Amino acid sequence: MPYHLLSIPFEHLQALANASLPTTPPYTQASDALPPAFVATRALEQMAAGASAYWCSTFYIIATERQHIVGSCGFKHAPRDGVVEIGYGISPECRKQGAASAAVLALLQLAFDGGATQVLAEVNPANLASTRVVKKLGFVDTGSYIDETEEELVRWRVNKVDWCPLSLPLH
């Protein structure tokens, strides 16, 4: 099933930051497909501080044929020393259908086209589905750490010079 990304409109980010659900016609939306309030708030704060919308915008992940929002994704910040971090989430009812892989692949293309030299994804090691996604797309495990909330995370990185989208198995 093909997917595409759609930048979440500013008004939708404002609604999400206030914990309300934006109306999304012509799109339908799966349950738990929209980004959490803290993601929308982070994007709005970065934009207010003058950050480029290219790097702080959040995207709907849309199942193209059905015009159905299945998740969200985006960059967590503008590149720092060439490194940008991504985040993504898929509605539980829409998982295992290729949406996460398609979204991360699109984010990689955007990141490298936008001048980033390395993309970072931090994944809880218990999240086997996300681990499979990043491994499949060429990310390399660079070690784990415990974050400020006491969650163990594995840092996965992919370098622009090593990345070849044409050689990736997407199915």
Results as ranks from 00 to 15, higher is better:
residue 119 V to Y: 09
residue 107 L to E: 06
residue 97 Q to D: 03
residue 106 A to P: 01
residue 132 R to V: 10
residue 119 V to M: 05
residue 131 T to R: 02
residue 95 R to M: 07
residue 122 E to S: 05
residue 117 T to K: 00
residue 121 A to D: 03
residue 112 F to C: 13
residue 110 L to H: 14
residue 124 N to Y: 06
residue 122 E to Q: 15
residue 125 P to T: 00
residue 110 L to R: 15
residue 119 V to L: 04
residue 100 A to V: 06
residue 104 V to W: 09
residue 97 Q to Y: 00
residue 105 L to Y: 14
residue 126 A to E: 10
residue 107 L to R: 05
residue 128 L to T: 11
residue 132 R to K: 14
residue 103 A to Q: 08
residue 108 L to D: 14
residue 106 A to W: 10
residue 108 L to I: 11
residue 130 S to G: 03
residue 124 N to D: 15
residue 105 L to K: 13
residue 103 A to H: 10
residue 125 P to D: 00
residue 115 G to I: 07
residue 110 L to V: 13
residue 130 S to R: 01
residue 129 A to I: 01
residue 113 D to R: 11
residue 118 Q to C: 12
residue 114 G to I: 10
residue 97 Q to N: 04
residue 107 L to S: 09
residue 111 A to V: 11
residue 116 A to I: 07
residue 98 G to S: 01
residue 125 P to Q: 01
residue 101 S to L: 06
residue 102 A to R: 05
residue 132 R to S: 14
residue 127 N to C: 03
residue 120 L to T: 11
residue 111 A to T: 14
residue 108 L to W: 10
residue 119 V to A: 09
residue 131 T to Y: 03
residue 101 S to P: 03
residue 132 R to M: 12
residue 109 Q to R: 13
residue 95 R to W: 01
residue 98 G to R: 02
residue 106 A to R: 14
residue 115 G to H: 07
residue 120 L to K: 08
residue 106 A to H: 13
residue 130 S to C: 02
residue 115 G to C: 06
residue 107 L to N: 05
residue 118 Q to T: 12
residue 101 S to V: 02
residue 125 P to L: 00
residue 122 E to F: 07
residue 108 L to V: 15
residue 99 A to D: 13
residue 121 A to L: 03
residue 110 L to E: 10
residue 108 L to G: 09
residue 115 G to Y: 06
residue 98 G to P: 10
residue 119 V to T: 08
residue 111 A to N: 12
residue 123 V to Q: 02
residue 113 D to E: 14
residue 100 A to R: 04
residue 113 D to Y: 11
residue 97 Q to H: 05
residue 103 A to W: 11
